[in-house]
Design a protein around this nucleic acid. Structure first.
Lengths: 298, 298
DNA sequence: GCTAGTTACTAACTCGAATTAGTGCTACCG
DNA sequence: CGGTAGCACTAATTCGAGTTAGTAACTAGC
């Protein structure tokens, strides 16, 4: 068995004429010897590892993320690629790209700018139809249809720059759909990790701007912080203050009152992201990318 | 500049006599040419990528995980290694090990058995002093000291085999510390994703075994499911039923009543895991690996 | 027996870095 | 002038897979 012949068989090199019997012999030998191609050597030749790196921003988590990852994986396995996920708290992005040499890189709105690395794709999620802007539309539109005009947007009171960037991006989307939805005002409501502080913040906001009748939160956790503060202040939800979350997390349905929230079709987003990263054509969304799950808090 | 000389300088090969001026010239040239050593080629020579793969079981999440990852990373950067984390829902473990060829592999109690891969370390977390057994001791011991004798352990009603394995492991730990703590009985309380089902399960358990006065949950989420069910059933917490969580997650302090929980020193565990994986000696714990955060639910 | 066609072979080389053994050159000392 | 450090060089190899060009061995047809 020459290395060349073996290579032709195992990699099914097109245009190579080999007897079927020979192919069988090679395959049998490979099996018997438990031949496992050395991936690093392959990667060296190919120029990159059979890996796509997904960089998650600091905010996303839980339910949505799971679906997104799932969707990307579905798409990548068809190409024999493995998905690697980097969370905000893990190794620095550069270090990670350097260490694994991925075939492609997918970043949700991130700090990462510039870069000569091949196959790098940035998803800016600003899409009017399928990005965060659309989700803002879904969330605020629902409140608008219920008659709310003054709405507060609950955000995390973070000082982290990259987290802040995402928050600002989402506030911009909210502002962008404001007039279209006939909303009078959209105010920011920055919440912390402390229930006491949050109570004070909510109380201050409502006394400053009593016209506010609803809170749209950037995630379910923030919505629940709001509900907790409202409960502490003796505010009736949803009669005096409605609240809607984002992401349809598990605790939301458990809360009392059960949290109304926006669910997004994360799996479909994952598919899209993967196809984009691989340079394959992305199709249309089969159904709306986000929808409201109505429960008791609105 | 010969390749050999350059290699000696850049890798600081010990035992090589070189003039400082030459070293400087090499370094300057490397900088000017933006020399970036190709990691895959390096990995090929070294036999593995400069990466340690951490495999998280299906249960862990949130707060604890963050600390653990942080701790491992602290330790690994000193060796120039990058930490990669695999969650339960991502690519299969084999595929991932195959794709990145990590220097070492760290698995929390997992399905993964056998394996010729070098540097693979399984952490069985059964340690009496510093593992899950110790945490069970911390959690149940606290309830025992409050006078509880019949305790229910809230578990996720999962059918997933690997998740089930971890649950069983933790139930075993609970059973193991039972007699030592003077507890009469430790019963399993399997909770689902449905508040209605949970309410029925809790009601059934308490009518079958009215002696039960406390619930110890395997994580905070399960503790909150229990609290939700208790609230629905009109059970007074903590007077008629106490509840303690595990993991000190963010929502726990937000809940009403605020959740008593067990916090574990995840960063220290991360350090240990990394040192273990690298074959370095692991020291003693400076302080208890877990402690109770007392709030209103007990 | 010659030619053409089929099939599998050998040998050399790529990817990029690291490492070894051996060599050449300079400078200094006795 | 010979000997010996001190220093940097050349050339060859390794890691494992994959690829290419050229060739050898065999069979079939005329």
């Amino acid at each position: 068995m020459s290395p060349a012949t073996v290579s032709f068989v195992l990699n099914e090199t097109p245009g190579q004429v080999l007897r079927e019997e020979t192919r069988d012999r090679v395959r049998a030998a490979a099996k018997q010897l438990h031949y496992q191609p050395h991936r690093i050597a392959r990667a060296l030749r190919a120029g990159s590892s059979p890996v796509v790196l997904l960089d998650i921003g600091p905010i996303w988590g839980g339910h949505i993320l799971d679906g997104f990852v799932q969707g990307m994986r579905d798409e990548l396995v068809t190409e024999g690629l493995t998905l690697l996920v980097r969370r905000g708290d893990e190794a620095p992005l550069d270090e990670m790209i350097d260490a694994v040499a991925p075939r492609a890189f997918v970043g949700l709105p991130s700090e990462y700018t510039g870069g000569s690395h091949s196959g790098r794709v940035e998803i800016e999620e600003g899409g009017r139809l399928d990005g965060l802007a659309a989700h803002a539309h879904t969330q605020l539109g629902f409140l608008a249809r219920l008659g709310h005009r003054h709405i507060a947007v609950a955000t995390p009171a973070t000082s982290d720059a990259s987290a802040r960037r995402i928050v600002d991006l989402r506030l911009q989307h909210a502002a962008a759909v404001r007039s279209e939805l006939g909303l009078t005002q959209v105010t920011e409501l920055p919440l912390t990790e402390s229930p006491e502080d949050d109570r004070a913040t909510v109380a201050a906001l409502l006394s400053d701007t009593p016209e506010i009748t609803a809170v749209a939160a950037l995630d379910d956790m923030l919505a629940m912080r709001t509900l907790r503060a409202a409960d502490d202040l003796g505010i009736d939800v949803p009669a005096d203050l409605a609240a809607i979350g984002f992401g349809n997390s598990a605790v939301g349905s458990l809360w009392k009152p059960a949290l109304t929230t926006v669910e997004i079709d994360a799996v479909a987003f994952g598919h899209r992201a993967a196809r984009l990263a691989l340079g394959k054509p992305v199709g249309e969304f089969a159904r709306p990318a986000s929808r409201v799950i109505v429960r008791e808090s609105t």
